[in-house]
């Protein structure tokens, strides 16, 4: 049987690191789908078709988890027994929170004033800060003897920023 216990990184033959080679991930994903996709077994036996469905869905799940910077961080932490996606645990650094709440307020004012330019600069700032956090996470997680539990606040901050950027993007789309 397909080894469903194999972790997402191993499934694509990639090292279990936060910094990921996007091109290698894409290529490995495509190569895997080329082998297991149900289209290859359209005329096959019921068993072949069912297994292909499961394997292909598994490949999609793994790819989705590794593709996004937040889901990849959460997944990497989960491999080390750290749950960074727990919705009940929402503690964030006070300074960070204050800065983001300020951004949210500015965004709402800009939205009310149909000020797309301000929204766009807030969006760019959120993305830039997210990128910095990704770099910090890569340094923190990809070193020898990394403390995965200690990285949890950064992962939550990254999730917060990515969500903020998405919301800003939606606001811009409505005004456009």
């Amino acid at each position: 049987m397909i080894d469903f216990s194999r972790n997402h990184f191993a499934l694509f033959g990639l090292p279990p690191r936060y910094r990921i080679d996007d091109a290698a991930l894409d290529a490995a994903y495509r190569a895997l789908q080329a082998e297991v996709h149900p289209d290859r077994f359209a005329g096959g036996t019921d068993a072949q078709r069912r297994i292909a469905l499961q394997a292909s869905a598994r490949a999609n799940e793994a790819y989705g988890a590794l593709k996004g910077p937040v889901s990849r961080a959460q997944y990497l932490l989960s491999l080390h027994g750290v749950d960074a996606a727990d919705e009940k645990d929402t503690a964030l650094d006070f300074d960070f929170l204050e800065r983001q709440l300020e951004r949210r307020e500015q965004a709402e004012e800009a939205q009310d004033a149909s000020d797309v330019r301000t929204l766009e600069s807030l969006h760019a700032a959120a993305l830039a800060e997210a990128r910095e956090l990704e770099d910090a996470l890569a340094r923190e997680l990809d070193r020898e003897g990394a403390d995965f539990a200690a990285a949890k606040p950064r992962v939550r901050e990254l999730a917060f920023l990515v969500k903020l950027a998405d919301d800003l993007d939606a606001m811009i789309a409505v005004l456009d």
Binding site: L32, A34, V36
Partner: peptide, 18 residues
Amino acid sequence: AARRMDRGVARALTGRRV
């Protein structure tokens, strides 16, 4: 069928299909 699928996964990993 399950073993064949496993072989497919292994083949994808070795990069031949890439």
